[in-house]
């Protein structure tokens, strides 16, 4: 019988807040998560590189998309996870939420960066330029700035509790501002640039391309989750070490 079945919903919520329980659970989950991730990304890459057609306009470089699009999705999802965890940390003082927000940031930033780099690599043969001040590119770049600011704030304030609260406030203010920034950039872009550079609506994606894309997206998401668990475990251990060191120095 499930040992938690007699608990109410709130009690379960708090039971998962226990870092020791999280450590035990994640210890069991990381290996299967990693295995499925490898399976999905392996299958996705095989489809993407060998078993999908080249685009009639973009040729072989369309294959960059299978890495680019999932990275961009996860770059945005990372921020949502960070902001959501920050809200939980501020409102409920959930001890793991804090750890989760901190651990999600570098992963999200890395995916954001990956999306920008792969987009740039794709843009050189397609648009003939490494960088285009397109609304989406610019928004993604600003998202990367937001990530980097968040990470910088965590690293400059030494005490985890204080740093956590400050970073959570920044993430929440950021999440309120992200739509404003995004739409201002879209508006700016339509003012300055005719949309003719980009096809307004590309051909709807063929199923031979959709299968690898979805496999990769799912694989990337699981990869994100696995990394998040690993990083959260490392962060919890780091805090334990810090607490022990503080206790030792007081002896």
């Amino acid at each position: 019988m499930n040992p938690m079945s007699h608990l109410t919903l709130t009690q379960r919520f708090h039971a998962f807040a226990n870092p020791a329980r999280f450590m035990a659970l994640s210890d069991k989950l990381i290996a299967p998560f990693g295995f499925v991730t490898a399976l999905l990304i392996g299958a996705g890459l095989w489809y993407a590189l060998f078993n999908s057609p080249a685009d009639y306009q973009q040729g072989e470089s369309v294959r960059i998309m299978y890495v680019h699009v999932p990275s961009a999705w996860l770059g945005m999802m990372g921020y949502m996870i960070m902001a959501g965890a920050s809200l939980v940390a501020l409102v409920f003082r959930h001890p793991l939420a804090d750890v989760c927000a901190k651990s999600a940031a570098p992963i999200g930033a890395a995916f954001c960066f990956l999306a920008l780099v792969t987009g740039s690599l794709w843009g050189k043969p397609m648009w003939g330029t490494w960088w285009e001040w397109d609304a989406r590119l610019t928004s993604m770049l600003i998202l990367l700035f937001l990530y980097l600011g968040y990470i910088a704030l965590w690293s400059t304030i030494e005490e985890p509790q204080r740093a956590g609260r400050a970073a959570a406030i920044l993430a929440l203010v950021g999440s309120i501002n992200v739509p404003i920034v995004h739409y201002s950039v879209v508006w700016w872009n339509t003012l300055h640039q005719p949309a003719s550079v980009f096809r307004a609506d590309g051909p709807t994606i063929a199923s031979s391309m959709l299968v690898p894309l979805l496999l990769m997206a799912l694989g990337f998401t699981l990869f994100f989750m696995t990394l998040l668990m690993v990083r959260m475990r490392a962060e919890i251990l780091r805090r334990r070490v810090r607490a022990l060191q503080l206790a030792l120095s007081e002896v």
Binding site: I142, G149, L153, I157
Partner: peptide, 27 residues
């Protein structure tokens, strides 16, 4: 306010708020 306890936090504060200044600049 976020960087008030950071020694010489001026640079960090600038990095944090520049993204939020973008809409003001654009409009």
């Amino acid at each position: 306010a976020l960087t008030v306890s950071v020694r010489r936090g001026g640079l960090l504060a600038s990095l944090l708020v520049i993204p939020f200044y973008i809409p003001v600049l654009i409009f």
